[in-house]
Amino acid sequence: MFSYLIRRVLMLVPVFFAVSLVIFLILHFIPGDPIDNLLKVGSSPQARTEMEARYGLDQPLPVQYGLWLGRVLTGDLGTAIVARRPVADLIAQALPHSLRLGGLALLFSSVVGVGLGVVAALNRDRWPDRAIMGGVLLGSTMPGFWLGLILMLVFSVWLGWFPVSGARSWQALVLPVLTIGLGGTALVARITRVAMIEAAGRDFVLLLHAKGLSPLRIQLRHVLRHALIPVVTILALRIGWILGGAVTVEVVFARPGLGTLLIKSLSQHDYPVVQACLLMLAMAVMLGTLLGDILQAAMDPRVRAALG
């Protein structure tokens, strides 16, 4: 198990370098640069040249990438060109809001998704199953930003139950959490239902019925435990995607966070901030994938046996 963990961590190293290169190149290929937001109207070409030299933007792209990557590997995310503050400070100020939102959305989608999946599996091919799967299908195809606007219109504008925007109270978290969590709920419910139906057809379930255990106890205590293996793996994989999905939701609800910081910095072409934000989101996806593989190996004896 330990050797498998080491191999998986080492596999992330080339992925990290490839992702960092893609982030750097895509950002620098976008028209415009941060100097446009710093120069005054009518500034001379010499002023632009001096400012580009000050921030190292006059050097070839391979040199800029090497310098940026070298600083990142030593823990230095650089200084924001437009905001003129350390990038680490900006991220440290925004990240807790995104983690709080993403963590609550993950908890919501886990609890509600598993619950709906269990109810659907226990009522297979009956009306509760059809109703839940119909709602799941609708929830999985609904864009997050559109759902956020609908929830805002109904519960904030019409009913006045929750604030439209901001992050000053726990009420401001309800609608953003629902917006992000409902999509994950649909996925978790569908996987839970399929996994429980598959596990219910295995030989050990027939043996438990032969021993006289009640069907409900078999389903909730034994079948569900086996069905949670793929569910836990999917939830770990969704860690990064939930943080990425929070980008649009934070903008819709005008919440402070990594997404708001990313969009604002992207409009200003503030390279160090955008690169750091995108790298953080990419690392969240990579770490979620690693966590999913580790949890699957820890929960499934067959996987551990295959690893040797």
Rank of each mutant, 00 (worst) to 15 (best):
G42M: 15
S165G: 08
A246N: 07
D33I: 10
I35R: 12
I294G: 03
I132C: 01
R190I: 06
F2Q: 01
L38E: 14
R100C: 11
I294N: 00
G113E: 00
S3L: 14
L262M: 04
P128E: 12
L243T: 04
E250F: 11
L57S: 01
C277M: 11
S110L: 04
V157E: 04
I23W: 01
L207C: 10
A276K: 00
P34W: 04
F29K: 03
D129S: 13
Q171I: 03
V194D: 09
M280G: 12
G134R: 08
G148A: 10
Q59L: 15
P128D: 05
V249N: 01
L147G: 04
T289E: 15
G117F: 01
Q275C: 13
I6H: 11
S140N: 07
I234Q: 06
A284T: 07
I35F: 13
G102Q: 04
T260G: 15
F2M: 09
P230K: 04
S98L: 13
L57I: 08
I234S: 09
L178C: 12
V114S: 02
M286C: 10
V303S: 08
F17V: 14
L138S: 12
Y271A: 05
R221M: 13
V114A: 08
T289P: 06
I242V: 15
L39P: 00
Q275F: 07
Q59S: 12
E50K: 02
A189M: 00
G257R: 03
G103S: 07
G244P: 04
Q268F: 06
F17I: 08
I229C: 14
L137M: 03
H269V: 14
M286K: 02
A94C: 11
V174Q: 03
L291Q: 02
H226Y: 14
W241K: 03
I218W: 14
F108H: 00
W170T: 14
R48Q: 08
A120D: 11
G240I: 09
L295S: 15
R130N: 12
A236L: 06
M1G: 08
A88D: 10
Q268M: 09
V164M: 14
V136T: 13
G102M: 02
F162T: 00
L187Q: 08
L173V: 07
Q171N: 06
D270V: 03
T185H: 01
L173I: 02
I6R: 11
L147P: 05
L10Q: 15
L67G: 03
W241N: 13
V82C: 10
A83R: 15
I234Y: 11
S20R: 02
L206C: 06
L220H: 12
A210H: 04
Q268R: 11
V303Y: 09
P272T: 09
F155A: 09
L147V: 07
T141P: 00
D36I: 06
G135K: 05
